[in-house]
């Protein structure tokens, strides 16, 4: 094999690129938006990605974990990751001091198929932390507004205090070029001005043409189920329903095996799958 594989490349895909957390913006309880910048100018300038892609973030000494990117490639220079404090790596991440060094590899995964999405209406349906990857697509669409027809966001949270990117999204309600529908399951504050009810109730407030629309869904499993029902009821083609899936990932590059579902690697072939692919993969939904 020696001459067949005369290995010369020094590109090691597992080596994180040095970066720093330049700012941390608290969101809701146990959720923060981390703004991260690469150390090297070359990386800052060349790093680009598609909405829906993810990076592997290292807290050196603790470990590495995948995070979907919440910022948009239309605003280069800084990567934003919206993180829930939930496990080994995120616990350590939340404890880091300002300006702490971290490692970033990526971007990985397929991301949303922008070439297919362009020229269509976009319907984004998010629940809970599912807003993290969809915020990237939302910002991308608003920054490239002419490339898309109607842009509709439906986002549900348990209550107003649980809504990610709340102020930024509330501002969008007034904006004419996007239909921003926000809802909460319950509102005890009495201050909530938008909708109350589960996210599927928002479907009554928007006109959606299934033939010219791509739906992108991200949220908890139970939400997937009801939103899918709603979309299928409206005759959405399964190929026009896109979902972002979560799995255990340890390499991000299709080797370590953990994210394998049926015959797809979530890290290479996903994390964005269309619904047809998803129902053909055992264990997927």
């Amino acid at each position: 094999m020696s001459d067949a594989h005369n290995y010369t490349s020094d590109e090691n895909p597992y080596l994180p690129k040095p970066a720093r957390i330049i700012r941390t913006l608290p969101q809701i309880l146990d959720h923060q938006l981390f703004q991260i910048r690469f150390e090297k100018e070359e990386m800052i300038n060349n790093f680009t990605y598609r909405p829906g892609q993810f990076v592997m973030l290292s807290v050196i000494g603790t470990g590495e974990a995948p995070f979907s990117i919440s910022s948009s490639p239309t605003r280069p220079g800084i990567i934003e990751l919206c993180v829930r404090r939930i496990g080994h790596v995120t616990n350590a991440l939340f404890k880091l001091p300002p300006n702490a060094p971290v490692g970033i590899r990526g971007p990985y995964g397929n991301g949303f198929p922008l070439d297919k999405l362009e020229g269509n209406n976009l319907l984004l349906v998010a629940g809970g932390l599912g807003m993290a990857p969809l915020r990237s697509l939302l910002r991308y669409a608003l920054d490239n507004r002419s490339k898309f027809k109607d842009v509709i966001l439906m986002y549900g949270a348990r209550n107003p205090d649980d809504m990610l990117f709340k102020y930024e999204l509330l501002e969008l309600i007034e904006q004419p070029d996007v239909k921003c529908l926000l809802t909460v399951d319950t509102d005890n504050s009495g201050m909530w001005k938008a909708h109350v009810g589960v996210v599927t109730t928002l479907f009554d407030h928007a006109e959606i043409d299934p033939n010219n629309t791509y739906a992108a869904i991200c949220g908890p499993e139970i939400m997937f189920k009801y939103v899918l029902e709603e979309l299928l009821k409206r005759n959405f083609s399964k190929n026009r329903i896109l979902m972002s899936l979560e799995r255990n990932m340890q390499c991000g590059v299709g080797k370590c095996g953990h994210c394998m579902v049926g015959y797809k690697y979530t890290c290479l072939d996903g994390p964005i799958f269309n619904y047809w692919d998803a129902i053909n993969l055992p264990e997927m939904v």
Partner: peptide, 17 residues
């Protein structure tokens, strides 16, 4: 494949089978 596992390939390239 798209990403190359440098550890495996570096060792493999040094072996005769």
């Amino acid at each position: 494949g798209r990403y190359v596992d440098t550890y495996y390939l570096a060792r493999k390239s040094k072996a005769a089978i």
